[in-house]
């Protein structure tokens, strides 16, 4: 899978990253209607995912290769009577009609409750934009305090490609300024932050 950087970790400002910013990040993400789960292990993350998929009765799930193998998604979803798509062309064909998309994001930003996504790969973007429920997985130590610290990081890796901040679900206030969730993008954003490192660097 294409990435802007395969090693975001080395780009974090050493003084300004860590779990100490997680609480504020989670609070602000929740303020904008994201659901946040913090878990210790990959196994716990797996059960959160299973729960979500059960509760929304998902029939179709799309996931990026990056998240599929460390969380062993085919195995944990096997018994669930659903289709899981993880290949690029399948993702393109099915993302629009899938119920859930699962992908990794690189870090959180405490100031705004945003997550930063390395969006270069087309499958990544399809998965986090098209299905109504978007699950993103991150490491709970990868939280920076401010937008400035986020750009400290980004400016080190961003030569070309595509980088996004995602802050809560898709929303609009275009009719009578009434806040309405889920216009073109997902109506639910679930952030799963895992304490242990699940991706190889």
């Amino acid at each position: 899978m294409k990435k802007v950087s395969n090693n975001w970790k080395q780009a974090f400002p050493p003084e300004s990253v860590g779990t100490e910013f997680f609480e504020e990040f989670a609070m602000r993400a929740q303020n904008v209607a994201a659901k946040v789960f913090r878990v210790k292990t990959a196994a716990e993350a797996q059960s959160v995912i299973v729960e979500i998929i059960k509760s929304c009765d998902a029939k179709k799930v799309v996931a990026t290769p990056e998240v599929v193998s460390p969380l062993e998604l085919p195995t944990i979803l096997k018994s669930m009577n659903l289709n899981l798509y993880t290949e690029q062309s399948d993702i393109r064909t099915h993302a629009d009609t899938s119920d859930v998309g699962i992908a990794c994001v690189e870090f959180g930003i405490a100031e705004t409750g945003s997550v930063c996504e390395d969006s270069l790969a087309i499958e990544q973007r399809l998965i986090t934009t098209l299905p109504p429920i978007s699950i993103v997985v991150m490491n709970s130590a990868n939280v920076v305090p401010t937008i400035a610290a986020a750009f400290e990081t980004i400016s080190k890796v961003f030569d070309h490609g595509y980088i996004s901040f995602i802050t809560g679900p898709s929303r609009t206030s275009d009719i009578e300024r009434v806040l309405t969730i889920g216009v073109h993008g997902p109506s639910q954003l679930v952030i799963i932050a895992i304490d242990e490192e699940i991706r190889e660097v």
């Binding site: 294409k2 602000r28 904008v32 690029q88 062309s89 393109r92 930003i109 100031e111 705004t112 409750g113 945003s114 969006s119 270069l120 790969a121 087309i122 937008i147 980004i154 961003f158 030569d159 070309h160 490609g161 595509y162 980088i163 996004s164 901040f165 995602i166 802050t167 809560g168 679900p169 898709s170 929303r171 206030s173 993008g185």
Partner: peptide, 19 residues
């Protein structure tokens, strides 16, 4: 809009992949 950040902020540099 009185938001700390909008739902999406995207930065695109150069030609990104498409299908």
């Amino acid at each position: 809009t009185g938001q700390l950040m909008t739902s999406y902020m995207s930065m695109i540099s150069g030609a990104a992949p498409a299908l």
